[in-house]
Structures are given as C-alpha cells and as structure tokens.
C-alpha cells in the first residue's frame, strides 16, 4: 500500500502495478486489522447496549414480579392507608406519603444551604480555601449512607428528643429523616450549583461589578437568571437521590406502618419498608413489595429524567 511512493518514470507499467498493489503479507495484515476493528467495535457496542438491556430488564422484572399483587389488590394498593402483612392488608399510602414528605423536607432545608455554600465558594471564599472547603463538602457525599443512619439514630435522634421533646417526642420520625436526607443531598446540589455558576462568562460578572453592583446584586440579577435551569436541574437531581435513599432513612424514620398525616410523627418510606420486610416476605407480600419497588423506580426515573433534561440544556449552553 505504501510502496508506490518511490516509483520513477523509467519503470515499466507492469512493474509499477506490482509495486503499487499490496503484497500477500500486507493484504493479510490489512484483513486481520479490519477484522480486529470490527470485533472491537462489536465488543464496545454490545457493552453499550447492555445499558439499555439493564433498564429494560429492571423495569420488566419488577413489572413481572409485581403483577400478581397488582391483580390481587388493584387500586386498594394505592389508596390503602395501612400496611399490615399479618392480615394481608397492603396499602402503599403510608410509604408513598413518607417518601414524598421526607424528600420535600430535605429539599426545603438543602436548597438555601446549598445556594449559600455555592455563593460562598464562587464569590466570597479566598482561592486558597476554595479547594479545601469544596473537597470537604464532596467528601460528605462520599460517606456511606449507613453511616448517616447510624449517626442519625445514635446521635441526632437522642439530641432532638432531649432538646425538643414537644416536637420530636420519639426523636425519630419524618422530620428527622428529612434532616438526615438534607445533609446527604447538600453536597450534590452544591456541586451542581457551583458548576453551573462557573459557566457564566466572567465578562458578564465583571461588567456588572463595573456598573457598581454589590456582590449580591451581581448574583441576584446576573448569575441567577442565566443559570436558573441548571440550578433547578441540580435540585431535582438531589430530590431523586432523597426519594430513593434507603439505609439512612430506615434507621430514623420510625417505621410506623399506619398513615399519620403529620410532619414530625413517625412513618415509613417506600425504600425503608422494602428494606425492613423484604427478606422475610413471600407470596403476596413479596409481590406487593416488588410492586412498591416498581412505583419507586418509576417516580425516581421520572424525576431524574427531568433533572438530566434540564442539565443537558445547561451543558449545551456552556459548550
């Protein structure tokens, strides 16, 4: 293939053809490499398709395993306010209520705090400290969730119980779980908020400062409007995390299987209910728990898809 470059005008036509065409050895090398190329692409493509297969089988297996319960219980599964395995009464309402309430409490606490940290990190903090504090917040995201649960039940719950006995009579409950969840999702929301705030071109910031704006006015009127979508994406991402969190919540939510429409009372969440009952369940109860898992998967899938969609728009702008 590469031998034709030194051909001079004196050589005969046949000679030239021979030199231009590949030798048998070169041809086999080309063939071999072509085969390797195809095999390599095949291997990488099938691994990538595995992701789609994963999603398909997760949904499929949960639907299949939860189907008997859905047939047996019908709508009462979603409207029943009591989950009592011993009398085969499976109402998912307490768990769904607990999941939503704890996540919303967590978001309500985490949003202002994460915003504050992001403002501090991008605008206030001396560059030297920036890396250290950023790392510390990110390490908080690395602590395993069971550690949060243990800490919540051994330190936070007794503290709340002894200092605010009127609000937290048992120490554990929906608000305690929400507080723990808030601590867990603050790092996620902070990281996203900080990153999208960095996508604002410095020249916009500088021109606002040049007009005499205070730091807060720059943030409020220049940075916020242009990163709104990305920040919302980060918040929804945190919400997705909070909805599906299991171990931290199981310890501190109180595991009360009756619906109690309060904010500080004891309750349960979908993930906590599954974690508590699944290993000893069979028959209808197991199927009902798997159905509950499907409900959680669908909720988080919708929430996370929304978050990714909003962040994607942000990335396109940054690019």
């Amino acid at each position: 293939m590469t031998t034709g470059s030194s051909v001079t005008s004196k050589t005969s036509e046949g000679d030239r053809m021979q030199k231009l065409s590949a030798s048998a050895q070169e041809r086999s090398a080309l063939k071999r490499n072509g085969l390797v190329d195809r095999l390599f692409e095949l291997a990488t493509r099938s691994s990538a398709l595995l992701v789609l297969l994963l999603l398909g089988t997760i949904t499929g297996s949960l639907v299949l395993a939860g189907w008997p319960a859905l047939q047996e219980l019908g709508l009462s599964f979603f409207t029943g306010d009591r989950w009592a395995a011993n009398v085969e009464n499976f109402g998912a309402l307490p768990a769904i209520y607990g999941t939503l309430v704890t996540s919303l409490i967590a978001i309500a606490i985490a949003i202002p705090v994460s915003l504050g940290i992001a403002i501090f990190l991008t605008e206030l903090c001396p560059p030297k400290l920036r890396r250290t504090i950023g790392t510390m917040v990110e390490l908080l995201a690395g602590v395993p969730s069971i550690i949060y649960g243990m800490w919540g039940v051994e330190v936070l719950a007794p503290f709340l119980q002894s200092h605010f006995p009127s609000v937290f009579p048992a120490g554990t409950g929906l608000t305690t779980a929400g507080l723990i969840l808030a601590i867990m999702i603050i790092p996620f929301i902070t990281a996203v908020t900080r990153d999208v705030m960095h996508t604002v071109p410095p020249i916009m910031r500088e021109s606002a400062y040049g007009l005499g704006c205070t730091t807060w006015e720059v943030i409020r009127h220049v940075i916020f409007p242009s990163v709104k979508g990305g920040m919302l994406g980060g918040v929804i991402l945190g919400l997705g995390r909070a909805l599906g969190e299991t171990m931290a919540v199981t310890f501190v939510i109180g595991n009360n299987l009756f619906l109690s429409a309060t904010l500080t009372g004891q309750g349960t969440s979908i993930a906590a209910l599954i974690a508590n009952q699944f290993s000893e369940a069979d028959g209808l109860q197991r199927s009902a728990l798997l159905l509950l898992g499907l409900v959680l998967f669908l909720i988080t899938f919708a929430v996370l898809a929304l978050a990714r969609f909003m962040l994607k728009r942000m990335e396109q702008r940054a690019a």
């Binding site: 297996s61 949960l62 798997l290 998967f297 988080t300």
Partner: peptide, 26 residues
C-alpha cells in the same frame, strides 16, 4: 448513543435498593 447516554445518566443515580430488588428477581 444519545439514548444510551441519557439512560446511563438516570441509572447513575437510580436508588440502590431497586438494584437489589432487580438482582433478587433475576
């Protein structure tokens, strides 16, 4: 590729207890 990317991003933060249920079932 875009679909796979999107699904992967969602799986990245899917609740781990769901993964447990899934492996239990399959």
């Amino acid at each position: 590729a875009n679909t796979i990317r999107f699904i992967n991003d969602v799986l990245l933060s899917a609740p781990s207890i769901i993964i447990g249920l899934y492996i239990y079932a399959v």
